[in-house]
């Protein structure tokens, strides 16, 4: 397979998932909120966007609506957790379950049939990438547009979490008791952060729907795990020293994740029935990566002194020869 085509496929899958991973990161890491809404908001975001586009709404507005729909899912989860005091995990699951039905309803409407889970194909010229001619860019138009969106989102996220309010949100996640005693309204900060997170996931869903030209009822299954794996891979390989560092790590992590999958499925021609096994293996690997990293560092600490000594000796001998 052509290497440029492989890169293109990886990026067109990996870049939207950067947004997904970023959304999961905001709740999972910053807010310490195990948010199960992700798959629901991805589905709803994609479904809303697909529906809008089939109804000939301008793609920019359709994408924005997808993002908003995801945000509403997040708001509901936050509301359930904070105002109705339902445990975090359960409130996410409730929204996710509800969103399944709502998405079905949306798809059904788009097909002219209610409660049908069939997908609705989208014409490429109607999508957000439509303004770039696919004949000239050969599929790269998707990568370019999504890359720009990801860059903007990363920049805004970096700025937002450095502002006064962003700092309040981070404090809420780290130490809620302290945040409250410092006059931060933790109810509002939590709801806002969960909403933002799910809005990003909704945006990811909208972009995925437009890249895959449609979305079906099963289209979002497994994406929460993709997001988590991206975060874990990124953080262990590229570090999480600061917020900026973490943002970049996650984006690289999700691209790397899809690179591995593409390599397995496209280059090594892994049969499709084995892909689920590959996913599971990758996630297990991502989870134990910190341990592997430490083991390697330990091993290196043991091996490196003799090696360094050896090179030192060589160097000293050379110098002596030169001196002579």
């Amino acid at each position: 397979m052509d290497i440029t085509e492989l890169i293109r496929l990886t990026l067109s899958m990996g870049l939207p998932c950067c947004l997904l991973a970023l959304g999961v990161f905001l709740t999972f890491r910053i807010l310490d909120f195990a948010d199960m809404t992700a798959e629901g908001s991805l589905l709803i975001g994609g479904a809303a966007c697909a529906l809008m586009i089939t109804k000939n709404v301008p793609p920019l507005i359709a994408t924005f609506v997808g993002m908003l729909a995801g945000g509403v899912c997040g708001f509901i989860t936050g509301f359930l957790n904070r105002v109705l005091k339902i445990p975090k995990l359960l409130s996410g699951i409730i929204t996710m379950t509800a969103s399944g039905s709502i998405a079905l309803l949306l798809f059904g409407l788009a097909n002219g049939r209610i409660f049908a889970s069939e997908i609705n194909g989208i014409d490429n010229s109607k999508t957000i990438f439509g303004f770039l001619d696919p004949k000239i860019f050969h599929g790269w138009q998707q990568v370019m547009v999504v890359a720009v969106i990801v860059a903007i989102v990363l920049a805004v996220a970096y700025f937002f979490f450095g502002t006064e309010y962003g700092m309040a949100i981070r404090a809420t996640g780290i130490n809620e008791k302290m945040a409250k005693s410092q006059g931060i309204n933790t109810t509002v900060t939590t709801i806002i952060c969960v909403s933002i997170s799910n809005a990003l996931i909704g945006l990811a869903g909208a972009l995925i729907a437009q890249i895959d030209s449609g979305m079906n009822a099963q289209g979002a299954t497994g994406y929460l795990v993709v997001g988590l794996a991206s975060i874990l891979i990124g953080e262990t390989l590229f570090g999480k020293r600061s917020f900026k560092n973490a943002l970049i790590s996650i984006s690289l992590g999700s691209i790397l994740y899809f690179a591995i999958i593409m390599l397995a499925t496209q280059v090594f021609k892994m049969p499709t029935d084995l892909t689920k096994l590959l996913y599971a293996f990758l996630i297990a690997l991502a989870l134990c990566l910190p341990m592997i990293k430490q083991a390697i560092l330990k091993l290196w600490a043991r091996i490196s002194p003799p090696i360094k000594r050896f090179f030192k000796k060589l160097f000293v001998r050379k110098k002596k020869k030169e001196a002579e």
């Binding site: 502002t163 006064e164 962003g166 309040a168 410092q182 006059g183």
Partner: peptide, 15 residues
């Protein structure tokens, strides 16, 4: 954070 105790946190101003 402590310096802004009891004040509004602006989402537009750098922290």
């Amino acid at each position: 954070i402590a310096y802004r105790r009891g004040r509004k946190h602006s989402p537009f101003l750098w922290g």
